[in-house]
Design a protein around this nucleic acid. Structure first.
Length: 730
RNA sequence: GCGAAGGUGGCGGAAUUGGUAGACGCACUGGAUUUAGGUUCCAGCGCCGCAAGGCGUAAGGGUUCGAGUCCCUUCUUUCGCACCA
């Protein structure tokens, strides 16, 4: 479909990561991420043209994803990184060693502030820029600077803290509008990978340029003014860079123009000279999907000396990987597997080589969810069932997928749409990013190198009276270790094996604990004591059900009108909690769904034994409790439903309807109202539920507590909130 | 630096969105059962105070009969991005 291309792309390459992953020679397709990865290489491989969808991806991020968390939308927006401005050239006469003009005599830059072009007092290029390299050949100081700039720190933090430094090249370019000579500097803050690796320097209106100019005593020329404000080169101020309020000054024919008008005028003039035009720059780059590992999905291409890259014919698909490959640390083992490698060219039949790059795992994770909708379909990626089920109502995943997986899946969906395979733009209507599970990790730093982690079993941990960790020592030699709360990880020796939990408590306990301990979007701190608590609740639930089994079997329907107040109150509690649970499920707050279930059990446990009416109420309440807990603890509830005879009467629990709130059961004859004097809680009164406001006011004023606190003063104002409280202002 | 979300007991966290702050659970304390440990059950548990009462949702101010919730200022934590021209 023209969406995939075999070519090279300049990427940032992390030589360190390569050594870490000793068993595979990895060219990480995401290596173009700026940051820790510093070495730039031209990487050949297969690229998916996600940049062709940049505009639409951005547009849909802003308009079609209201069911996504704000922060994920923002991360995607920043990742796509749209930037509108003008790309233009500074002409020059600098010739290279070959006698030809470098860059055909044009040094291109990109700017989002073309309205400040008259304030250019210098230019800066990246250390890797051809002009910088040319200057380095003639001037050892420039060469030394470039060497230093290229070394530097490799982590993001070091890069950010690095001071902005530069060195003049002694080369000059011509300002495209004024014709002035402008000196070119090499700056360590200019990125070769963004735009053209060169920037115009407008110190008056760009904070970074301002600092740079002050440091090297370069001229600062104000070209934007705001009425009532005076420009001073002494210190940087926020408004210097403001686009909204300013107008051009000291800018010749552009004087008086606003930001937008100035951009149009400058762009038009540059275009008339053939030196520039408006341009949109993206941070997003094409997606390199080639991997030099053998276990990925094969790329179905055969390389023929005569016919180049030939697709594997459909009848020979899928290409199946050999199963006898053993990685030996010397690169992709497929390259040494003759049986896999040597094939005949599908076009001419002559000997040819199979492609040994495999696909990034993100490729298949970009549409696996659609494939689930078309199980067993042998002759298509997806069939009509996909149209029914997709787009997905609710996607749940970790925040670590906020950018790459979700962006790739959205891109893939749009490609499938353009191929006529699906009929929607976006795959995920609602997105929930669940939190991660945290646990204490214990470590020490044995001199140079990384941390050494220990399991808690290897340590003597001292805790205070509240069980908080005071200190920890290694059992075998008594040396102290540090502790920190962090994500569970194999490498940090702080993971909890689900299998151990299942063996000790059963799967339901583990589910209940995770659901109950924190809301889904928050991270969760692991606690063995908390798990015990969850097991305790399930045991009580189970014991309670069986203690009432016989009574329930003989119980009839609840006759609400015949119930005395304590049993009425019990039903009221059950249905009040059910209403709360319904509310919490809708807003995906499962921790309070569980606490609601605990309240329900607490209430039901108060029911008197040996009472037929109580048995009917318990039978009803327990049927509700079992059903609301079924999604959380499916095994325990399933067994209770069967053993208490609900299944025989109502059918399988999975088919049982969700319990409905009995509005009549929520009604109470009397309500308790809080009494406040001047907004302070002083007591409460019980009033008939039907009492009108005036009646409530009278009862409240007559209450002994109120009399006491009013001290005989008259009530200035009485606020009655029905069903809640009475506030008396004196 | 920019952006986003937070700050509530000893701890995890509730508070149906301006109306009883601390639900539910963990931990802890006392009691009962038990030969003992564990389990289970009962009671207590924000802080100060013998009590009456006072004070309490990061700090300060404001709106309101009433503020954890709304507004302003400050402090602070976590996460994301980070020389993007």
């Amino acid at each position: 479909a023209g969406i995939c291309e075999r070519r090279t792309q300049v990427v940032n390459w992390d030589p360190v990561d390569m050594t870490v992953l000793a068993n595979e020679q990895v060219i990480d397709g995401h290596g173009w991420r700026s940051g820790a990865l510093v070495e730039k290489r031209e990487i050949p491989g297969y690229y998916l043209k996600i940049t062709a969808y940049a505009e639409e991806l951005l547009d849909h991020t802003l308009t079609q994803l209201p069911g996504w968390p704000e922060r994920v939308r923002l991360m995607q927006e920043n990742w796509i990184g749209k930037s509108e401005g003008v790309r233009f050239a500074f002409p020059h006469e600098v010739k290279g060693a070959d006698g030809k003009l470098i860059g055909d005599g044009r040094m291109y830059v990109f700017t989002t502030r073309p309205d400040t072009i008259m304030g250019v007092t210098f230019c800066a290029v990246a250390p890797e820029h051809p002009l910088a390299e040319h200057a380095a050949a003639a001037d050892p100081r420039v060469a030394a600077f470039i060497d230093k700039a290229k070394q530097g720190g490799t982590t993001e933090a070091e890069l950010a803290l690095k001071e902005k430094e530069g060195v003049p090249t002694g080369l000059f370019v011509t300002h495209p509008l004024t014709g002035d000579k402008v000196e070119v500097w090499v700056g360590n803050y200019v990125l070769m990978s963004y735009g053209d690796g060169a920037v115009m320097g407008v110190p008056a209106h760009d904070e970074r340029d301002f600092i740079f100019a002050k440091k090297y005593n370069l001229p600062i020329r104000q070209v934007v003014g705001v009425e009532g404000k005076t420009y001073s080169t002494d210190a940087w101020q926020e408004w210097y860079a403001d686009k909204q309020t300013g107008k051009c000054v000291n800018s010749g024919k552009y004087d008086g123009l606003s930001y937008k008008a100035a951009i149009d005028a400058v762009a038009a003039d540059l275009a008339a000279k053939g030196l520039g035009e408006k341009k949109t720059t993206w941070r997003l780059r094409d997606w390199g999907v080639s991997r030099q590992r053998y276990w990925g999905t094969p790329i179905p291409i055969i390389h023929c000396p005569d016919h180049g890259a030939v697709p594997v014919p459909e009848k020979d698909l899928p290409v199946v990987l050999p199963e006898d490959c053993i990685p030996d640390g010397s690169g992709n083992p497929l390259n040494k597997n003759a049986a896999f490698l040597n094939v005949a060219c599908p076009t001419c039949g002559k000997p040819a080589k199979r492609e040994t790059d495999t696909m990034d795992t993100f490729v298949d994770s970009s549409w696996y969810f659609m494939r689930y909708c078309s199980p067993g379909s042998d002759d298509a990626m997806v069939d009509a069932r996909n149209d029914y089920w997709m787009p997905m109502d609710q996607y749940i995943g970790g925040i670590e997928h906020a950018i790459l997986h979700l962006l790739y899946a959205r891109f893939w969906t749009k490609v499938m749409r353009d191929l006529g395979l699906v009929r929607f733009d976006e795959p995920f209507v609602n997105l929930l990013c669940q939190g991660m599970v945290l646990n204490q990790a214990y470590s020490r730093k044995p001199g140079e190198g990384g941390k050494e982690y220990f399991w808690e079993e290897e340590l003597d941990v001292v805790r205070d009276e509240h069980r908080r960790i005071v200190s920890a020592k290694l059992k075998r030699d008594g040396s102290p270790v540090e502790h920190e709360l962090t994500t569970m990880s194999k490498s940090k020796s702080n993971g909890v094996d689900p299998q151990d939990l299942i063996e000790k408590y059963g799967a339901d306990t583990a589910r209940l604990y995770v659901m109950f301990t924190s809301p889904p979007e928050q991270s969760l701190e692991w606690s063995d004591a908390g798990v015990d608590g969850s097991a305790r609740f399930l045991r009580r639930f189970w014991t309670f059900g069986h203690a009432w089994a016989e009574a329930i079997a003989g119980a009839g329907k609840v006759e609400a009108a015949a119930l005395a107040e304590p049993l009425k109150a019990l039903r009221r509690e059950v249905y009040t909690v059910l209403r709360q649970i319904d509310f919490d499920i809708k807003r995906i707050q499962y921790n309070t769904v569980v606490s609601g279930a605990m309240k329900m059990l607490n209430a039901l446990e108060q029911a008197p034994r040996g009472d037929a009416k109580a048995a009917a109420v318990v039978r009803e309440g327990l049927s509700i409790l079992i059903r609301v807990m079924n999604p959380v603890v499916p095994h325990v509830t399933h067994a209770l439903w069967e053993e208490l005879g609900y299944a025989a009467q109502y059918g399988d629990l999975l088919d049982a309807p969700w319990p409905l709130v009995d509005e009549a059961a929520l009604k109470s004859d009397v309500v308790e109202l809080m009494l406040q004097i001047n907004g302070k809680l002083r007591g409460s009164i019980s009033v008939p539920a039907t009492a009108p406001k005036e009646e409530i006011e009278k009862l409240a004023l007559a209450a002994p507590v109120v009399q006491k606190f009013m001290e005989g003063k008259p009530a200035k104002k009485v606020v009655v909130v029905p069903g809640r409280l009475v506030n008396i202002v004196v």
